[in-house]
């Protein structure tokens, strides 16, 4: 498996995304915003469509759209008070509808699109990998740098707000991180499954972790393993990589749930 360059690149990209997606997803899950990743993915779909229509690299237009969508979701959520899920629904559906309209305008309801929806990790090139690794490293560094304030908001948002922690700016930072993660993960698991990689490893880790820090660390480890195991299985069993990775993550969740409940007794 490792003799082939495409597989080495795939494993490299999968490893980066496998670690980054749960690290960012952690803060969304803890604040019960698990679906934000999905919302951003839907907007990224419109971005891909725009890229195909304008003949610009779809990953770039998807990144731009994802960042705009992530910030829009965050602003609608923080201004709208309780209507967070409706804000999300608005962005969700606008994104998909716009994507469909743009795609058919480009006359490109074809294989290209399929790759973005379901991932195409086996076509990752050297330069793709460099971009994924570089942006992934930046994303992880930002998570590391902002870990304490972000965890502080999860623990007690009002207390943090009173003490002058810049909640609004930090929330925007999380939205931007989520957008970058979505754009990078698109190649690996596809738009439709991006959010799964942000959420499932975190849920799995929560079942067996003993602190917040350990939850984050375990989630990253589970994400990494899911990615590598999923790719390996898909290589030998000739299965679609994106779906296989997410199924492995779902399996990890099941195992962790069982371990957690056995230990809890």
């Amino acid at each position: 498996m490792l003799e082939s360059e495409f597989m080495r690149l795939a494993l490299g990209a999968g490893a980066v995304v496998g670690v980054l997606a749960p690290a960012v997803g952690f803060f969304l899950v803890q604040r019960r915003q698990s679906l934000t990743g999905d919302g951003i993915g839907h907007v990224a779909f419109a971005g891909v469509a725009a890229g195909i229509l304008l003949d610009v690299a779809p990953v770039l237009t998807a990144l731009v759209a994802a960042i705009l969508g992530g910030i829009a979701i965050e602003l609608l959520r923080s201004r709208g008070g309780t209507a967070g899920d409706q804000a999300l629904a608005l962005v969700f559906y606008t994104g998909i509808a716009l994507g469909v309209v743009l795609i058919s305008a480009a006359g490109a309801l074809n294989v290209d699109l399929f790759q973005y929806l379901f991932g195409s990790i086996l076509t990752v090139t050297r330069s793709d990998f460099v971009v994924i690794a570089a942006l992934g490293a930046v994303g992880l560094a930002v998570v590391g740098l902002l870990y304490r304030p972000l965890a502080g908001i999860v623990i007690d948002e009002e207390g943090a707000r009173v003490a002058g922690v810049p909640i609004g700016a930090l929330n925007i930072a999380v939205a931007a991180l989520a957008a970058v993660t979505v754009a990078l993960s698109m190649r690996v698991v596809g738009i439709l499954l991006v959010a799964a990689l942000m959420v499932l490893p975190v849920s799995a880790a929560e079942r067996i972790a003993w602190s917040m820090r350990s939850t984050l660390a375990l989630a990253m480890a589970i994400g990494l393993c899911s990615s590598l195991v999923g790719l390996t299985v898909s290589y030998y069993a000739d299965l679609p990589p994106g779906g296989t990775i997410v199924l492995v993550a779902a399996g990890a969740y099941a195992v962790c749930s069982i371990v957690g409940s056995v230990r809890g007794r």
Partner: peptide, 13 residues
């Protein structure tokens, strides 16, 4: 005051 989500934060955290 309650923990946001089910974060398994310890007392020290």
């Amino acid at each position: 005051s309650e923990l946001g989500g089910d974060a398994p934060a310890t007392v020290r955290e």
